[in-house]
């Protein structure tokens, strides 16, 4: 099993519902976010293009955060989802420094926190992650890449896509449809 997510940059309007949905579902402390919106404007005025992305942890297959964790608190869970066990985390910050996407943050309680793909609270119950569920433009797809009929497998077959900084060698599992 290999969980992955695809975000359609052509459909995303940057409304931040995914951000608020995640914060509510996961009790994210005030002032922090596990997912966020990035807007990239590119071109020569007046010929400008805008790309809107809903970003989060890339749940990389070759995760620098898992590699550098001195206690094993950062680990691969079911379907390759990268999780942190709070009781094993010493809050050293090595994983935060090691993430090229800066997807992690120190939780006010001390341990390091990040996107979980809502694995335990939703996905294991057969639901989509909170961000995917609340998206008003239905621009996000989630599922198992090993299952050719999952929404994410189907959309990745049909559309052109990219990942973020693939040259960092992390093999990210968050895909952006372009």
């Amino acid at each position: 099993m290999r969980y992955a997510m695809a975000v359609d940059t052509k459909k995303c309007v940057g409304c931040s519902d995914c951000v608020v949905g995640c914060q509510t579902e996961n009790n994210v402390p005030i002032g922090y976010c596990r997912d966020w919106i990035v807007e990239v404007t590119d071109g020569t005025y007046p010929q400008l293009e805008i790309e809107i992305r809903s970003e989060r942890c890339n749940h990389c297959e070759n995760s620098p955060c898992v590699r550098c964790c001195p206690t094993g608190a950062s680990h691969y869970a079911e379907g390759g989802v990268v999780l942190v066990t709070p009781d094993e985390c010493i809050g050293c910050g090595a994983c935060i420094a090691s993430c090229p996407y800066d997807a992690r943050y120190p939780h006010p309680e001390g341990y390091v926190d990040k996107c979980t793909f809502c694995l335990d609270n939703r996905v294991k119950k057969g639901l989509d992650p909170a961000c995917v569920s609340v998206c008003p433009t239905k621009c996000m797809y989630f599922g198992d890449l090993d299952d050719p009929n999952s929404p994410v497998s189907r959309v990745l077959k049909k559309r052109k896509w990219k990942t973020l900084i693939p040259e960092a060698g992390t093999n990210p599992q968050l895909y952006f449809l372009i």
Binding site: V38, T41, G43
Partner: peptide, 9 residues
């Protein structure tokens, strides 16, 4: 050509 990145994080 310019590239402007705005992040909500």
């Amino acid at each position: 050509r310019e590239e402007l990145i705005v992040s909500g994080r």
